[in-house]
Design a protein around this nucleic acid. Structure first.
Lengths: 242, 242
DNA sequence: CATTACTGCGAACACTGTACCCGAGTAGAG
DNA sequence: CTCTACTCGGGTACAGTGTTCGCAGTAATG
């Protein structure tokens, strides 16, 4: 069995013999990302990609073994799009913060990422680069290598999880085709009923008294607050330098 | 326009007139969850659910407006399955920890949750219950209501994001149909190449020296570590009690 | 220059979600 | 008790999906 090609990153772009391919994997990936960005992940079909590229649908399967491979390529392409992560500055808090904000911004630019990452670990070269740089920011702290992994994992988990929560709202609005105001109007009577039922006193307090949910930058501020507490947690557990 | 029924939770189970429906929404939801648990989210189709229930496919649309509605119902049903969250004990760290572990366990029992939650805010009654209880655990701490929201959000974000990372691996294995060992074998030569290339010294150190990734309970320990740091972060920022 | 190994791609297959329509059956009104 | 209005179940159909097959054409190799 030809094991070498079962992993997309190991497949050669061009064959040894035969005519030159008229398209590249990068071209196909870019077209797919453009579609997903503009019309959502549900609009991304092989036929749609082919149409965008002015080619036959079946031709795509000369470059990709499956649609899943295309999704892998999309995830990795996105990981590289802003020229790779910045170099460590020595200020580990700032570095991690920057990393987190950039990661969140990337997800916002490509909302479909969140639904994709759910069933797909990314081992693409650009994703590996990103992990390397996150580790580099932590390196001077003197953490155990195992602890460093958990720090990076936790940071990623928080960013991913938080961004998913943010986008779930937006996606629901987009999917149902109604505007944000109409969506809130549609749910308001239901939430009112919940509050009036009295079995959720704290939720009622949230709906009545909380200011953050109504703020224009509520997601921004919630993200900042969560992130800073996370950093605080590590700062309180720095290893003793020898 | 009939706004009241545009939200699934407001739709009456039974119509005012006419014959009694032979199935319930709960029955359909349970069948769908069983399929998704056993065969993965990709195997969940309306025809498959209908077959499981011994009914016609089109009949399902008497109970649900769309497949998306079914997915919403599934998410909310899962939120209720272990009899609701436990009551606050006064030990806020313990309470939040319990909540986090239960949430993670639920996701592990139903891996498809992660791919669904990506595009769907959960406003079902059971999901609201869960939020209420999380807020209750925090109530005695004297946090501002807005801060309480961010704490709950951040905790959820971490748990969701971390569990997604865990399941991505498992899902990839399940999807490709090969065992965990075969999967690692298939990727090993590629990772070796990366290490040998020398441009990822810290990743190389991880692959060579780290013990955690090879431990049987690596995910468990990583989760615990991340969670404790998160709790540390809040503990370091408790409000001054008057 | 024949051979070989590739490329592009139309057509087809087995699926999917769901709209439409029908006969059958039931509940409330008179 | 009859009538009528409405709901239920479900067969059929449609548009769309990912993917495979087979064939014609092309570029490099020996």
């Amino acid at each position: 069995m030809d094991d070498a090609h079962t992993v997309i990153w190991n497949r050669p772009e061009r064959a040894a013999k035969g005519p030159a391919p008229s398209r590249t994997r990068a071209e196909i990936t870019a077209a797919a990302i453009a579609i997903a960005d503009a019309e959502g992940i549900d609009a991304l079909s092989m036929r749609r990609v082919a149409k965008e590229l002015g080619t036959g649908t079946a031709s795509l399967y000369r470059y990709l073994a499956s649609k899943d491979d295309l999704l892998d390529l999309m995830l990795d392409a996105v990981a590289a799009e802003d020229g790779g992560p910045p170099a460590p500055t020595g200020d580990w808090r700032g570095d991690l913060r920057t990393l987190a904000y950039r990661s969140r911004a990337t997800i916002h630019r490509h909302p479909w990422m969140t639904s994709l990452a759910a069933g797909r670990p990314s081992l693409g070269p650009n994703s590996l680069d990103a992990t390397e740089h996150a580790l580099a920011a932590l390196d001077p702290l003197g953490f155990d290598i195992d602890v460093m992994i958990t720090v990076v994992d936790t940071l990623h988990a928080f960013v991913r999880g938080y961004a998913i929560g943010e986008l779930a709202q937006q996606e629901a609005v987009r999917r149902s085709g109604v505007g944000n105001q109409e969506w809130m109007d549609a749910h308001a009577p239901y939430l009112d009923k919940v509050v009036k039922a009295g079995r959720h006193p704290l939720l009622a307090r949230v709906i009545r008294d909380a200011e953050l949910p109504h703020a224009a930058d509520s997601a921004e501020r919630g993200f900042e607050l969560g992130l800073e507490r996370l950093l605080d947690g590590w700062e309180a557990n720095l290893p003793v330098r020898p």
